[in-house]
Computed example of a mutant assay.
Amino acid sequence: MVALGLVAALLIKTCLFQVFTIPSGSMENTLRIGDRVAVNKLAPLLGWEPQPGDPVVFKDPANWLPAQPDDGGLASGVVGEALSFVGLLPPRGDNYLVKRVIATGGQTVQCSGTTLRVDGRPVSEPYLHAGDDSCAGLPFGPVTVPKGDIWVEGDHRSDSADSRYHRDEPGGGAVPVADVVGPASAVVWPLNHLGWFGWSGR
């Protein structure tokens, strides 16, 4: 039965969902440190493309996230490797981040005062962490997002080293769509923070 369960988990990881752990508070309070988030890997195969407002998981494009230390617990050693292989823990060896898509290729994004604008239009951001405004003291732009890339920011804007902080690095802060694993679909752990983001299929 255990073997069948592992096979089923591997199939789900390969074709449907994969679980990632939230490493920081950059997406609070939507996502909290330690939350386990299921990412929909099937969505890109069905035509989904990142759209403004989508929370997405992506491979670290340019060492945005420091290497995470081995805590010596369940996620370490052979057990951790096995759980990672079947998708019950995040992939080993690579860093992955979760942020919210703000703009996509060809769009222009900027922030001034307390207002975020995409293509000149103010963006409503009801998901922002309490006490934060859209710019969180870091005005920028206008920046035109390259085709094939996305511009991402955290919901906890004052605690998120996102696209805004990497404008002077290769890529200009944008993230290649090719590095996006998929949309964050649900919080599956802990039980007191279960949540479903859904996917419109657009």
Rank of each mutant, 00 (worst) to 15 (best):
114 T>K: 15
72 G>Q: 07
55 P>Y: 10
70 D>H: 10
193 H>P: 02
202 R>E: 14
173 G>K: 05
66 P>S: 04
1 M>I: 08
138 L>C: 01
114 T>Q: 14
69 P>S: 11
202 R>S: 14
11 L>D: 04
41 K>H: 14
66 P>Q: 10
148 G>D: 05
165 Y>C: 05
185 S>E: 12
14 T>G: 10
5 G>N: 07
198 G>S: 12
13 K>E: 15
197 F>A: 04
194 L>I: 09
1 M>Y: 11
70 D>M: 07
136 A>Y: 01
107 Q>V: 13
66 P>R: 11
125 E>P: 00
192 N>V: 00
22 I>Q: 13
24 S>T: 15
43 A>S: 10
12 I>T: 15
40 N>G: 05
97 L>K: 04
25 G>P: 06
30 T>Y: 05
195 G>F: 02
35 D>S: 10
62 A>I: 10
173 G>Q: 09
149 D>Q: 15
93 G>V: 03
187 V>E: 06
155 D>A: 09
160 S>I: 07
73 G>E: 02
69 P>N: 10
116 L>C: 10
134 S>I: 11
8 A>F: 05
55 P>A: 12
180 V>D: 01
15 C>E: 15
87 G>T: 12
174 A>V: 00
121 R>M: 11
1 M>V: 09
93 G>A: 01
120 G>V: 05
33 I>F: 06
103 A>K: 00
170 P>C: 07
158 S>G: 05
16 L>Q: 03
138 L>T: 07
136 A>L: 03
158 S>N: 13
23 P>Q: 06
158 S>L: 03
148 G>V: 09
69 P>G: 10
47 G>V: 01
102 I>L: 09
22 I>S: 03
92 R>E: 04
178 A>M: 02
164 R>G: 05
121 R>A: 15
22 I>T: 08
201 G>I: 05
54 D>N: 14
184 A>S: 10
26 S>F: 07
49 E>P: 01
184 A>L: 03
58 F>P: 12
52 P>W: 12
91 P>V: 11
103 A>W: 13
24 S>H: 02
136 A>M: 06
2 V>D: 08
14 T>D: 11
94 D>M: 09
3 A>E: 02
184 A>M: 05
92 R>V: 14
121 R>N: 09
55 P>H: 11
69 P>R: 09
139 P>K: 05
123 V>R: 09
75 A>D: 12
109 V>C: 06
140 F>G: 04
123 V>E: 13
7 V>Q: 01
11 L>R: 03
148 G>F: 11
200 S>L: 14
59 K>Y: 10
123 V>Q: 15
50 P>D: 05
2 V>E: 10
85 F>H: 01
3 A>F: 03
111 C>E: 07
187 V>F: 03
59 K>A: 15
41 K>T: 12
182 G>M: 10
65 L>K: 05
50 P>N: 12
18 Q>A: 09
73 G>V: 01
162 D>A: 08
34 G>T: 11
107 Q>K: 04
11 L>H: 03
68 Q>C: 00
22 I>H: 04
168 D>A: 14
108 T>C: 07
183 P>V: 01
153 E>D: 12
155 D>S: 07
129 H>I: 05
72 G>I: 08
30 T>S: 14
25 G>E: 02
128 L>R: 06
47 G>Y: 11
161 A>C: 02
32 R>D: 03
101 V>W: 01
130 A>E: 14
179 D>P: 01
115 T>L: 07
186 A>F: 02
122 P>S: 13
30 T>C: 02
